[in-house]
Design a protein around this nucleic acid. Structure first.
Lengths: 194, 194, 194, 194
DNA sequence: TATGAATGAGTGTTCATTCAT
DNA sequence: CATGAATGAACACTCATTCAT
């Protein structure tokens, strides 16, 4: 009855199966069984197995950005913002860690690194806005250009979150944790004096 | 070492094929054909196709670390060191970009995140040494602990290098390049004053 | 007849698609898309994909016979007639060569060799009439019975036309062409003296 | 143990299945089941399902030509020869009728009408030799060139044989039978007098 | 009549792995 | 140690057909 019933069911099933097995090991047969639709129905909504990856990537990033915006206070300093972003990213990463990984490689092989960039664009834009405000406030004094800065900050946070939830952290002392990430980025926002 | 060393020939062939096709699309048949050995011989040296991944990962990291040490001058400041590491990482990433990516996911799925950590350990150790010296010299004043700091620095450099060589960089201004990475990390080494 | 006649639109679309792809590779989905009707509509007019074959075969033979009759002059000798039939058959074969081929096998597999004979009956009848007239005129003296004679003449012409338009005719000298076919059949019309 | 065991078994099974179902409806799974080999073994000997067609076509033609040569007497006139060829062709056609048909279309679709010509070449050559001898003996006086003549004779015989064994011959009188074919061709060998 | 979303059995093909030599 | 023919389960994808609207 619902307008996107089958489409959403297939995306949900794909997320569930690919989370568990990765992109290549997830078979369309498993996905459709999980979704409760016929094999052919999958191909009614997606041209190929590959075509489901951008749909998943978009959903994860949208979730992440929505959560960040929800947790973000208008009057927050860039320092508060970084803390919020780190918190939310760690949360979301915990939930979607395997998906994030396979999306990376999934998108890589299929002529579509632009799609990845396209999906992240609103996140980059939002982060650049925050950094520009911080520059005006004098809280961000680094000589790094805003564009690369936003990307590197997001990269560090995501990579650290992934490392945190994917490694077995045998030694507590050396593991990257949220606090360390926050301090690292705050440091990076202020210039060094050579 | 010897030219007839079948183990090395298989690893070399695996690197060549997996670089070109990725892990899953690289078939053992192709690898053994490239290596000039019989199908069964592969299984004399490796339990499975998966078992070849750590061997490849180890070789890449060893190459990276060897190149870094070769380029590193004993009397270098941490700033010089960062520049060297960024330079070499970008070079090696350019050459091995596909392998690095697939090792990431390849290692992730096959019960072997410890192996990844184990492989990177000497690199982390070396970086920690450099950072400890810098701390003594007063060039590194960040409150971030040495362990996480080393890991985050290495992460930023590698992720940035991958982004640089894998994205199509439509807009010059926003692309992360070597200079921006160097400044970012140098900034991160000095503390912020809240 | 009417432009909205869905039956005719489906037959036309089937001819177009099957001409291009052959019977098996032509899908009902492609046919209905070409015809501009819904998937289900096809099954309103035809019990199955196979059921469309006789409709196509009939249309081709009718076209062939109509063109032959149009080009045939009442006062023509059997020799003129043979030339006309060869000319027209080569023309029509050129246009419908793929269809003729697939109809052959298409009809063969689907319990319907009678249909093929039934479709060709008016053509056989017409040719027998021409040959009977020729016998009366003394231009056809062969001992071959009229029925088989008509069939063999039609077979030679059609097979030669197909060979002509389907083979790549590397060597000019050995290729069957219209002139050779005409002489061959004219020879066959007169008896041999053993 | 035998050198070509599996290869021959697959060809035999392909012939059996394709005889029964035609090329497209014959599945590789059925073929390998019939042959008693594994699915993958098929692809050890043939690149694809299509690749099995020339092998089959070659075997049929070789069988036909071998039987003709076996039945052919050195001192035979062209009339005897025609009778022999018709006899043998009708026999072989009876046995392989469905295969001959599907080979036609099978070869047609896959960029390979040359293969068909190549396979038939020795048969054409042999027939041309017979006709040349007949010309020297004065038993063949037709103005049709030897190349096309050989091809048309072979075509009439094969097509007639196919028509004979594939049609249901409701009316005895009109059916093409061996005698009629022999007379038809004998007539065609002598010139007409216009 | 007409629709088109949904079906699911079926296809050709691949490939990691085994084992008799 | 080394071989390579053989395996067969698994895969992504197609398509004739159905049926609720």
């Amino acid at each position: 009855m619902s307008i996107d019933n089958k489409y959403e069911m297939i995306v949900n099933a794909s997320i569930k199966i690919m989370k568990a097995k990765g992109f290549d090991k997830a078979s369309v047969s498993q996905i459709v069984k999980e979704a409760g639709v016929a094999q052919g129905t999958f191909y009614l909504y997606f041209d190929s197995k590959n075509a489901v990856v951008p749909a998943i990537a978009k959903r994860i990033l949208n979730t992440l950005l929505a959560e960040i915006k929800k947790a973000h206070r208008q009057d927050a300093t860039i320092y508060d913002t970084i803390e919020t972003v780190v918190d939310v990213t760690f949360e979301i990463t915990k939930e979607y860690k395997e998906l994030i990984l396979f999306c990376y490689s999934g998108l890589a092989y299929y002529h579509s690194l632009e799609i990845w960039e396209e999906i992240y664009q609103p996140y980059y834009d939002w982060m650049e806005d925050q950094l520009n405000s911080a520059k005006e406030n004098g809280l961000c004094t680094t000589k790094v250009e805003i564009g690369p800065l936003a990307r590197m900050i997001i990269n560090v946070i995501e990579t650290s979150a992934e490392a945190f939830y994917l490694s077995n952290q045998r030694s507590k002392e050396t593991a990257i944790n949220k606090d360390q990430v926050v301090i690292f980025i705050k440091s990076a926002l202020t210039d060094y004096h050579s």
